[in-house]
Amino acid sequence: MKILITGAAGYKGTQLVDLMLASGHEVFALDDFRYNQKVLQNHFKNPKLHLRKADVCDLNSYEDWLKQCDALLPLACLTGAPVCEKNPELARAINHQSIVDSLKVLSKNQMVLFPMTNSGYGVGGEAYCDENSPLTPLSHYAKLKVETEQEVLARENSLSFRFATLFGASYRMRYDLLVNDFMWKAMDSGEIHLFEGHFRRNFLHVLDGARVYLHALNNWDQMRGQIFNVGLSSANMTKLDLCSEIQKVVPHLQITANESMKDPDKRDYVVSNQKIEMTGFSCEMTLPQGLAELKKLFILGRSKEDSNQ
């Protein structure tokens, strides 16, 4: 199968390239390498990898790939609320318009697997948010994701994954993600200043975030046209719970509650992942495993390229 991955040099994209090539697929990897990341070199000898440096907003630069692919995985994105608030017009161009334009090129037989975010649930109340729960996106980033999901699902041969907050090691690291950020602070300074620790989130290892695409391709007739929450069910927890888990890995960690500060990210929800689990998908990486992995990685420090801002 020919798989077109935009944002292929990103945090999850690099994991996807690994998995798709290992599964025998032909991968068309597109990225603008805006963060100067040096990744994917371990696949350069593989004739099934095609690599192109291009702007996803320039449809002409990859329209030939769009026309020949069997599946489009549009990962190219300004990811996260801060960077989208800082660059709202660019965020709309990349996160929304580039995908809408791509859909116009595709035939009805080509598959689209859209990476949504469960941050679209905003503040979910006490009950578990499932795929039928109302969407109340709080940030520009989440609002664009919700808008784009509607466009994608308007075509028959598509599906949407509403991803939990990712964590874990990848070739192109991100330190702005909550688990990664907290773990870095624990390793670097030994202290986490916690704002509104009762806010609840769901988490997912980046490898499992990539594996679910392969699962969907292998079960397309069963899953097409639908929405799936994708998260680690054992990692529905408060921010304070997360800090306690990190403390098991970094025992000297000091957790300081700051009652006067407010979390700029107001998301607060618990998520049901039952629907994706009923298709036979299960996560391989637990939160403790991911934290242990991050501890090893962070011993090496970090570079200025490991930024998403």
Rank of each mutant, 00 (worst) to 15 (best):
M278E: 15
I99R: 05
L177T: 08
S23K: 05
G120V: 14
F281K: 05
N60R: 13
H205G: 13
D188N: 10
A127V: 07
Q247N: 11
V112E: 04
Y128L: 15
T148P: 04
L4Q: 00
K295V: 11
K86F: 13
K45I: 09
E293K: 00
V56D: 02
L153M: 12
A257Q: 14
G290T: 01
S61D: 14
A292D: 10
D306L: 11
N229H: 12
A8D: 01
M20R: 00
D268G: 10
P137T: 00
P264N: 11
L207C: 11
E89Q: 13
R302W: 12
A127Y: 02
S189K: 03
G225R: 00
A8M: 02
Y171F: 12
K104N: 15
V250R: 00
S282R: 08
L217M: 13
H25W: 12
V17Q: 07
F161D: 06
G10W: 02
D58W: 08
D101K: 14
N157Y: 05
D268T: 10
P88H: 04
K104F: 10
R224N: 11
K45A: 15
D18V: 08
T14E: 07
I299H: 04
F167I: 06
V112M: 05
F228A: 07
D221H: 11
Q254M: 11
A169G: 00
L300A: 13
E26R: 08
E277F: 15
T238Q: 03
E126Q: 07
A186Q: 03
D208W: 06
E85Q: 13
Q289V: 08
M173T: 02
T117E: 05
K143M: 14
F161Q: 04
A127L: 10
L106Q: 01
R174N: 15
V105W: 02
M278T: 12
P264W: 09
D268I: 14
P137I: 08
Q274H: 13
H252Y: 12
N87D: 11
M116D: 15
P88D: 11
V249D: 04
S158Y: 00
E147D: 15
P74E: 08
S133H: 00
H25D: 14
G24S: 03
